[in-house]
Nucleic acid binder design. Structure first.
Lengths: 113, 113
DNA sequence: GTACCCCTTATAGTTAACTCTAAGTCAAGC
DNA sequence: GCTTGACTTAGAGTTAACTATAAGGGGTAC
């Protein structure tokens, strides 16, 4: 059960320590342990959680909304429904975005000829 | 051959006059005529051109790159190849983006279960 | 003749998501 | 004991794409 420093995690996720501290400040990683002197000490599970954060970010979800999601995760099973609803909403958003892109490319393709 | 004022065009394209003047300043509409007193006087074809600008924007193309495209349009047929190349590149970008969204949603869908 | 819409320049504010610096502290490794 | 890398707070800077205000002026319509 190795633990990781902030720069190791940054490297693995292709981020910078600055960004990770920023995420922490924004409440996206309230789970990370600290050593007695205050150094962040990431577990594998923390890195997995951050990968989900990156996934949500990749769908265009703003950081504040991701924070809500993370908060719900910490409130336990009572928020399962809310999280599922958020997922459905996000899926709809992404599908709408993809549909718009598809249509836009069609238009451009048409204009190009 | 009606002509349109800036706020009529803004309304039709769901933008604001501020935004249109901003686009003008950024060089996205060097084609728009002016009255003797300096008022912008949009033709139908100008609105069509702006619709293409909106399309390109919808694919995530930054304004500076759109300006390049507009400039090429004004240079005439000698830039046809460049414009086509830009289109191909844009299509590739959009397709990559869509592919990433698809994969991301798959991952999230998996994590959700 | 006044209201409304257009124009300009210049400048400042907004939002999101970083990105970085400064100034000072702490702890581990060689 | 010095270097390295972690930490903190506070704050400034960056980028994109607007969005808005101020201050001044011009033209058209009722």
């Amino acid at each position: 059960m190795r633990k990781y420093s902030i720069s190791e995690v940054a490297k693995e996720l292709n981020l910078t320590p600055y960004t990770l501290r920023y995420y922490d400040k924004e409440g996206l990683m309230p789970f990370v342990e600290r050593t007695s002197s205050g150094t962040r000490w990431f577990a594998e599970t923390d890195i997995e959680a951050l990968k989900i954060v990156e996934c949500l970010k990749a769908t265009g979800m703003p950081i504040k909304e991701i924070k809500t999601f993370i908060d719900w995760c910490h409130e336990g099973d009572s928020t399962l429904q809310q999280r599922y609803d958020m997922f459905l909403e996000r899926r709809a958003t992404v599908e709408a975005k993809m549909e718009e892109l598809r249509k836009t490319m069609e238009t451009i393709e048409y204009k190009c000829s």
